[in-house]
Design a protein around this nucleic acid. Sequence first.
DNA 1: CGGTCTGTTGAAGGATTTCAACACTCGTGG
DNA 2: CCACGAGTGTTGAAATCCTTCAACAGACCG
Lengths: 249, 249
Amino acid sequence: MSQKRTTPLEAPSIRKHQCTVDIRLEKLGMVPFFWNLDREILQPINNEFSASHFHAGQPIYYEGEKATMLRVVVYGAVKLIRQTEEGKEIMVDMLKPGEYFGNLNELGDDTYSETATAQSDACIMSIGNREFRSLLNMYPSIAVAVLDVTTKKLNSARQQIHHLTTLSVKKRIAHILKELCGKFGEESKVGMLLQLPLSRKDLADLAGTSTETASRVMSRFQQDGLITSGRQWVAITDINALSEVVSSN
Amino acid sequence: MSQKRTTPLEAPSIRKHQCTVDIRLEKLGMVPFFWNLDREILQPINNEFSASHFHAGQPIYYEGEKATMLRVVVYGAVKLIRQTEEGKEIMVDMLKPGEYFGNLNELGDDTYSETATAQSDACIMSIGNREFRSLLNMYPSIAVAVLDVTTKKLNSARQQIHHLTTLSVKKRIAHILKELCGKFGEESKVGMLLQLPLSRKDLADLAGTSTETASRVMSRFQQDGLITSGRQWVAITDINALSEVVSSN
DNA sequence: CGGTCTGTTGAAGGATTTCAACACTCGTGG
DNA sequence: CCACGAGTGTTGAAATCCTTCAACAGACCG
């Protein structure tokens, strides 16, 4: 039985981050939207965006607000949260650099359907919907790239629905751990460490279950040697065994 | 207590449907992708598509097959089905004219993630992924239109996830009935009749529950006068009451 | 008019939630 | 540097929602 230890996560604000124009340009080129674009095209696009810094825990926008901006994570992690009717907060997604959030559509009466908060210190680039739409019309390759990213998100949302309707909690959590491992996993002494603060509540939200059930499942996984975990952190030690959990009996 | 009656659904094959070139052109212009396009542009686009007819129940493609085509429903209804690991079939979506399905992405090693079958007699237009990608690059406005449709689907998928993780079966079914009413509802003597064959199994699949539970919930709704229903058909008689069910205590 | 598919309902069993109490970790301030 | 307190994680037991199994009833098809 593996005992818990103090968090192995890197303190996110240790890495100093400065959004100079050059770094912004470089980051922008790394965003899937803007792959394959020449620097001469990237430059005017860059000018349309404005960058903002957020401290860990700071809100970026609120659910229900008028949705006027499209945003891209440049640095740090962003958490998307929805409210239930009873006012409980449910985490619905965790974003890492390169991912977009906010509102893509031309502004009408749309409002944000979730609250976004900086999970760690973060740098976010923003552009107005209208301005982004002109970019799309001006550079078809951007429109196609955005479509591809959106289609991928749609497919993964559909898979998640399928899992919610057909798999047990145990299998859903195993699958979510695998996904998070691919997205946030980094090699470390304790196995593939998920480089983000991740509580039992967060996992429970993603799996559509209660904190207690998530805790029980995680305890079991730890007993069986599939993971190592402590307060707000999880490391995967046996990803093949996790896969087996998902596809077993 | 309202008694069941024989189906009030229109037999789908009664309306005779002929896909002449002119009708194809007209239908194509009605697809959200191709709104706002001039007839001169529509003509060459039309030539890239080929139309096929399917009889009710006939499969269009199978889950796992190499995904080479993008398709659009011109006439009729299409049912998308996924398999569970144990081989049970789960209906995941019902499409009506104007909606797209199949694969949007450039063909790589992608396979269809669901099986598509014609729910009624149907006319489907198809285009190869590669050809569709050239259209996107050639006409940016199409790319933007496709992006908008996809974004809407994504938002609705996310809402569905939120419901699956936070609402009871009763509320989920009430919400699904409302959605279907907006999509397939037509005025009739028995109330807003959902113009498609819809079994308890179908509803159960959409709500992520069992046929029996769906049946119990529907019986209750019928008792309470919210719906009228029989074998493979449902009519909503009190949509406000359904809304209240979703948002109540 | 019989057979098959779909829908209904009851009862038992199971998975998950909820309530509750306690343990552990981490940051903060003495 | 240590101790405290708040937040987070764990675990047990009772309650609940839902599934599963089973039997039967009603609707549609030929």
